[in-house]
Amino acid sequence: MNITSIGSLESVSTYNKNYASKVSTTRNESFEALFESALSMINDTNSLTNAAEEEEMKYALGISTNTHDLQIAQSKANTSLQYTVAVRNKVVEAYKEIMSLQF
């Protein structure tokens, strides 16, 4: 029995533990980046919706008579909301597909 071979197994074991912790950290960072991106998209959609509502109020109160600005704000809010809903639907679809996998 060679003692150096056992020592090399310990170094492989240490390498595997370090690699596993790095992979776990990378996965956490990836999820965090994805979550931050989704949160940013929701915040952008919310701000565009609020801007459209503000333009509607200005137009309704007679402060603004420019229908062009109102239509642009509504269009931006609508497009942003449609995109956010489409992304949400794809995430839910992917989640359902992952949950239906058989191991």
Score class of each variant (00 low, 15 high):
Met1Ser: 10
Met1Thr: 07
Asn2Gly: 06
Asn2Trp: 01
Asn2Leu: 04
Ile3Cys: 03
Thr4Val: 14
Thr4Cys: 04
Thr4Glu: 13
Ser5Thr: 15
Gly7Phe: 13
Ser8Asn: 13
Leu9Asn: 15
Leu9Thr: 07
Leu9Ala: 14
Glu10Arg: 06
Glu10Gln: 08
Ser11Thr: 15
Val12Ala: 12
Val12Leu: 13
Val12Gln: 10
Ser13Phe: 08
Ser13Gly: 03
Tyr15Ser: 14
Asn16Gly: 03
Asn16Met: 15
Asn18Met: 13
Asn18Ala: 15
Tyr19Asn: 15
Ala20Leu: 14
Ala20Pro: 01
Ser21His: 09
Lys22Thr: 15
Lys22Asn: 14
Lys22Ile: 15
Lys22Gly: 02
Ser24Gly: 11
Ser24Ala: 15
Ser24Trp: 07
Thr25Ser: 14
Thr26His: 12
Arg27Asn: 12
Arg27Cys: 03
Asn28Met: 08
Asn28Lys: 14
Ser30Pro: 00
Ser30Asp: 13
Phe31Gly: 11
Glu32Met: 08
Ala33Leu: 13
Leu34Lys: 11
Leu34Met: 12
Leu34Phe: 13
Phe35Ile: 12
Phe35Glu: 11
Glu36Pro: 00
Glu36Arg: 09
Ser37Thr: 11
Leu39Pro: 00
Leu39Asp: 08
Leu39Arg: 07
Ser40Ala: 13
Ser40Cys: 08
Ser40Trp: 06
Asn43Ser: 11
Asn43Tyr: 06
Thr45Gln: 11
Thr45Leu: 01
Leu48Arg: 11
Leu48Asp: 07
Thr49Trp: 01
Asn50Cys: 01
Ala51Trp: 04
Ala51Gln: 09
Ala52Ile: 02
Glu53Tyr: 06
Glu55Asn: 06
Glu56Cys: 05
Glu56Ile: 09
Glu56Tyr: 05
Glu56Ser: 11
Met57Gly: 00
Tyr59Met: 07
Leu61Cys: 00
Thr65Phe: 03
Thr65Trp: 01
Thr65Pro: 00
Thr65Tyr: 01
Thr65Met: 03
Thr67Gly: 03
Thr67Val: 08
Thr67Ala: 05
His68Met: 03
Asp69Ser: 10
Asp69Phe: 04
Asp69Ala: 07
Leu70Thr: 06
Leu70Asn: 04
Gln71Trp: 05
Gln71Arg: 07
Ala73Asn: 07
Ser75Ala: 09
Lys76Val: 04
Lys76Leu: 12
Ala77Cys: 03
Asn78Asp: 09
Thr79Leu: 08
Ser80Cys: 06
Leu81Val: 01
Leu81Gly: 02
Gln82Glu: 10
Tyr83Lys: 13
Tyr83Gly: 09
Val85Ile: 11
Val87Cys: 02
Val87Asn: 02
Val87Ile: 13
Asn89Cys: 01
Val91His: 02
Val91Asp: 03
Val92Asn: 08
Val92Ile: 14
Glu93Trp: 03
Ala94Phe: 04
Ala94Ile: 02
Ala94Ser: 05
Tyr95Pro: 00
Lys96Glu: 14
Lys96Thr: 09
Lys96Ser: 10
Glu97Val: 01
Glu97Thr: 07
Glu97Ser: 09
Ile98Arg: 05
Ile98His: 04
Ile98Cys: 05
Ser100Tyr: 00
Ser100Gln: 12
Gln102Leu: 06
Gln102Glu: 10
Phe103Cys: 02
